[in-house]
Simulated assay, not measured.
Amino acid sequence: MTMSGAVIRARGLVKHFGRGQSLVRAVDEVDLEVPEGQTLAVMGPSGCGKSTLLHLLGGLERPTAGEVWVAGRRIDTLSERALARMRRRSVGFVFQSFHLVEELSAAENVELPALLAGRSPREARRRAMLLLDRVGLAGRARHLPARLSGGQRQRVAIARALVNEPLVVLADEPTGNLDTAATLDVLRIFEELRAAGQTLVIVTHDERVAATADRLVSMRDGMFVDDTHLAAARPRGLGGLGGLLGLGD
């Protein structure tokens, strides 16, 4: 694992909330490198700092101390505007609660990040429809989120995360609100992304999700307590994410 091949790097990462006797060390002196193409699962008890770590890595929160690098660029010192541009272009987010815009259709939710990144409306819609087809929701493209099941909403959210072909996808408890059948659908998609070489960091309580990863990090009290590589010999696809999803340039 070399620094030059790391999509994400964190050095001495610290995030505190509160002060004095109320001080919470959510993330406490964490070092991390995630190489290109690796699927990393982060597990640990509730309140151990998993989600906070993910938010720091994706630039949704700023650290109290330490450094965060994405694709060789330090992001914790960026302005808010530059940070927003970085997130649009380099990071795809998938959340437990989906965070879809309720007034927009499935297709409109997926194409929104592409429009914000400067894609033409025609190109943004093309990419949105291709991705919805790949996650099995082409027939639901015009549906509002209220007319979709939880599993369908999460598949829309995954498509949205992928629309700008991000360097890394960060997923925070992506199966936490799903039933077994929907969880299996999401697991299949993540396994396809892993096989295509997409870099993934997944925070999860679900051992089934962690089992799809190349590497498992365990957290407790804001710190890493174990770092294990899993099934390194599992095969991967050769076509890359763009080939898998049929996006192209």
Results as ranks from 00 to 15, higher is better:
R73Q: 14
Q21R: 13
L130N: 08
D76P: 09
A84M: 00
Q152A: 13
V94Q: 02
R11E: 14
S105G: 15
A106I: 07
T52L: 06
D214F: 01
G59Q: 03
P113W: 01
R88Y: 00
R88L: 02
P166E: 08
A82G: 06
P63Q: 03
H229L: 15
A84H: 01
R134D: 01
E61T: 13
L247E: 02
N177V: 04
R188S: 12
G197C: 08
G222E: 09
G18Y: 05
M86G: 10
E191N: 12
V27F: 08
H205A: 05
R234P: 09
D214W: 01
G20N: 07
M3F: 15
G139D: 09
P235I: 15
R73K: 14
A107Y: 00
A141E: 15
D214R: 00
R147H: 12
H55Q: 13
P113K: 04
A231N: 14
G18F: 06
F17G: 06
R9W: 07
G197W: 04
I75Y: 06
I189R: 06
E33T: 13
L137P: 01
S120H: 03
S149E: 07
V186R: 04
A231H: 13
L200P: 00
L131C: 06
V101R: 07
G237H: 12
A231D: 11
G59H: 03
A117I: 00
H143A: 14
G248E: 04
R153S: 09
R81H: 14
P166N: 10
G59N: 05
